[in-house]
Design a protein around this nucleic acid. Structure first.
Lengths: 368, 368
DNA sequence: CTGTTAGCGCTTTCAG
DNA sequence: CTGAAAGCGCTAACAG
């Protein structure tokens, strides 16, 4: 049965996942085979309803080729017995599954939590379960996770970024599982489905904003040093070079994970080593939050003495003292759109724009 | 006869896939079209390695009852063919799965993200995949998620809190799937596996701390109003009554989700409506962070004019101005321990302490 | 230590 | 619209 590409069934639809309100009358009559689990199966429901198993299967999945009265009959039998379909059997028989794997680098960055939550919501509403993977920004760990997840035959894959090992690319291609990438664009490979925005452009724009504010000794502070941070660095460098302001000594790079505490330390270090700095572009807002607090503690006036800008416009940036200038990135939209694109691919629908650029926005506040 | 048996897009695959040749003009009476997916299966590996399928199965799963040289042989064949086991088939055959469902109320509270990440790490290291569910603090949503997840037959269940519908309890009991609860204790049901701490005691202790600092008009500010927040409220009330300081007008309850912004608004409201307040216990640190920033903006001295305490000791609490007094809750440990207990239950091992109280700690800083 | 046999519970295929 | 038969790919249960 090839389900046509109609509006996708949304969660409370035909698929019956009944809840036994009471003890089912009697577990399957007698032990059938030595290996039977003793659970209520489709066959049990069929017997109870007085139809064949396949009719039960069709009725419960909402196939329209079953007489309404039979559907009702089957449904009642299923509820009465407390039938719960076995998805392993279903996916073995149909070679199709109801789960989707989502891989994010970290959960300690709010950005990825928002991404994950947005995607998870879309998947759940479409009846798909979310398998979570955390790569810790390590391509090898991503590969391992993918090897494990691939064995589960998820219906789709949602990955963050393009930083894969060759083996990972091979694995994805071989598996034939639809895959959508988040947070970056791949202009070089126009057939690769992805939704994000240009990290380099974003880095460029926020740096231009600082220059427009009259700053010249603009530092760039980044943690983690993942590919996307490095793209933002690239944007920063381009603009600084164009303005003849580039100074490698103003780059403050630290491979540790991003955090408020690290931002505070970076700020202290910068002020000590480069007291001439007049602005700082932090690669992520948590760093900037920490720096803002450190500045207050140290009595450094922001933006008078040093202007500060962040990235991602995370929670609280608008509440800081002073409110933080940042780049609003469409993370929730990225998660949603990516999930929807993946669902379309899973259903075999064509992707209208294969790559979606959701853009970004420089949000100017008092810190610059 | 649509066979559509496309060979996989692999360049010269040396392996003979079990795909029949072209169909003869008139197929024999009982001939059916095979449903093979064209993927490499265990049988393919067995043929290539010159052993039986079950030997491959055992070798690949690391059973010790296979000769070392055969294990090696099988392993090589599997790698050469790019074999990926089909977990649906495995779990159908063994009626056992390699996935675990983890349900949390929200991902917008850092607390649950930490919990999830800790548990996920333990599961991944033990070879289990994590199915993520978000309940939004709604028991009915939890029930629905559980109905869906149960069909997947996860090996175990990790739930946050005890706030279930009766149907949920029934479902868990019926399913026979091991289940561990996080973040609370259930003294009333000593057989229910759980790991957490006493929310009421924590509420009590932090309130006592404020009293000990000489405060008397201590407000209680909570968002979301979930069961655990209400337990902390209970602790607060008990202590305030004991001290003859209880004043219902000092309770500031708001069912909206917790956030920095809400904390700021709550603080403003409290200061306007109850200018006599001399301390505030916020039910979660994000509220307190927002309040601290609002206080600064409004020129309200903390702790001189109003003392402030939070809960959970989230990231940044030690960096705020002034640093925030809070209750450190062992969320990472809860996630880890709960995951380990669940793994033990899955393996059928006995649980030494069925309920684990991990305690908490009042961290006193300058805000009180 | 290795293999044979017989399913796990569901859906696909093909026929009425 | 309904059903019978035949697996999906793997592993439990027994032999040898």
């Amino acid at each position: 049965m090839q389900r046509a590409a109609q509006p996708r069934p949304v969660a409370d639809d035909p698929i019956l996942l009944p809840l036994p309100m009471t003890q089912p009358p009697s577990p399957p009559p007698r032990a059938r085979t030595p290996r039977s689990t003793g659970r209520v199966t489709l066959d049990d429901v069929a017997q109870a309803a007085g139809v064949s198993p396949i009719t039960v299967s069709r009725a419960l999945r909402g196939a329209r080729s079953v007489a309404p009265h039979l559907v009702e009959q089957v449904r009642q039998a299923a509820v009465a017995l407390g039938y719960v379909p076995n998805l392993a059997a279903r996916s073995l028989a149909s070679s199709r599954s109801q789960s989707v794997a989502v891989l994010v680098p970290l959960l300690s960055n709010q950005l990825f939590v928002n991404l994950l939550e947005a995607a998870q919501t879309v998947f759940m509403q479409a009846g798909y379960q979310t398998l979570l993977g955390v790569t810790h920004y390590r391509p090898e760990e991503e590969q391992r996770l993918l090897q494990i997840h691939t064995a589960q035959r998820p219906a789709g894959l949602l990955l963050t970024g393009f930083d894969h090992t060759p083996a990972t690319r091979e694995l994805i291609a071989q598996s034939g599982i639809p895959c959508v990438h988040m947070m970056e664009l791949a202009p070089g490979e126009p057939e690769l489905p992805c939704v994000g925005f240009s990290q380099t452009d974003a880095g460029r724009d926020i740096t231009r904003h600082l220059l427009a504010r009259g700053r010249r000794r603009i530092a760039f502070a980044a943690a983690q040093l993942d590919p996307r941070a490095m793209m933002r660095a690239e944007g920063y460098r381009q603009v600084m070079r164009e303005a003849a302001c580039y100074d490698a000594g103003l780059e403050c790079l630290d491979a540790q994970p991003s955090s408020m505490a690290l931002g505070g330390r970076m700020f202290e270090r910068l002020m000590a080593e480069r007291p001439d700095v007049d602005a700082i572009f932090f690669c992520n807002d948590d760093l900037a939050h920490g720096a803002l607090l450190a500045a207050q503690r140290m009595g450094v006036a922001v933006p008078q003495r040093v202007a500060m800008a962040g990235f991602n416009d995370l929670e609280g940036s608008d509440l800081m003292l002073p409110p933080l200038t940042s780049v609003r990135t469409p993370r929730v939209e990225v998660g949603q759109q990516a999930a929807q694109m993946l669902l379309a691919l899973i259903e075999g629908e064509p992707l209208e724009p294969v790559q979606v650029d959701l853009g970004f926005e420089v949000v100017v506040r008092q810190s610059t």
